[in-house]
């Protein structure tokens, strides 16, 4: 291997180490999906942005740089390319409609741990280490009362950085914002239960069985529409 090949390999290892490697960082795991030259451009853009922010104190440009390259990291998708999709109109006005919240953020109620692989109180770190196992696992839909106190809400998900969700569940599981909107009369109401699951799961099982079962469960809530949030 030539020196330039060694350098390229070292950079590739560095880039890929953010994807569940020794530099694992779920905010930046998409770096592994970028071409080497793109990853190099990202770091250059990021450092330029930080340098500018040192003087103008505006971090928005840094956020924009991260978002732009993150989108690049997720540009390629090979599976689940559908030509068309189902669509039904909302039959009522919003002010009359009852909504249900469903997210893939991995929230659950304290005392109702979905116990992945039979492990109770699994740490976030273990969930991240075992993310490839989660991707083969049957998904579990947790039900969460909409009036749950924030201190009784838990979140664990090996596929994304949960720090935002820990600081404020509304970032990914917006139950309190929805309650305020319902209280203002913008929507007719909310079903008493919201739902959440770990989106990093077996897509085959979700499609063949669990998703269909979930639809039947959700129907019992007599809801008019569902607000869905992926992470």
């Amino acid at each position: 291997m030539s020196d330039s090949e060694k350098l390229a390999a070292a950079f590739r290892d560095f880039k890929e180490s953010f994807f569940y490697g020794d530099r694992s960082n779920l905010n930046f795991k998409w770096l592994a999906h970028l071409e080497d030259s793109q990853a190099a451009d990202f770091f250059q853009d990021l450092l330029d942005g930080i340098g500018t922010a040192l003087d103008d104190d505006d971090l928005q440009n840094v956020v924009d740089i991260v978002n732009r390259w993150q989108a690049e990291g997720y540009r390629i998708q090979r599976d689940f390319d559908y030509d068309s999709g189902p669509f039904v109109r909302l039959e009522k006005s919003l002010a009359e409609a009852r909504l249900t919240l469903l997210t893939s953020s991995g929230h659950f109620v304290d005392g109702d741990d979905p116990k992945p692989f039979g492990v109770e109180n699994m740490s976030q770190a273990e969930a991240e280490r075992r993310v490839l196992e989660f991707l083969k696992e049957q998904p579990v839909l947790s039900q969460i009362p909409m009036d749950i106190p924030a201190q009784d809400l838990r979140v664990r998900h090996g596929g994304y950085d949960i720090h935002g969700a820990l600081a404020d569940p509304n970032t990914a599981f917006p139950l309190y914002r929805l309650q305020e909107i319902a209280d203002q009369g913008v929507i007719g109401g909310l079903s008493p239960l919201a739902y959440s699951f770990v989106g990093a799961c077996s897509q085959k099982r979700l499609l063949k069985k669990d998703g269909l079962d979930w639809v039947e469960r959700i129907k019992t809530q007599q809801t008019d529409a569902i607000l869905l949030v992926p992470v």
Partner: peptide
């Protein structure tokens, strides 16, 4: 992808959906 699948299944069951995604 998971949420996309669930949205499609809900719409097929005549329940309208809206997704908020990054």
């Amino acid at each position: 992808m998971s949420v996309g699948h669930v949205a499609r299944m809900l719409e097929e069951a005549a329940i309208p959906t809206v997704i908020i995604a990054a």
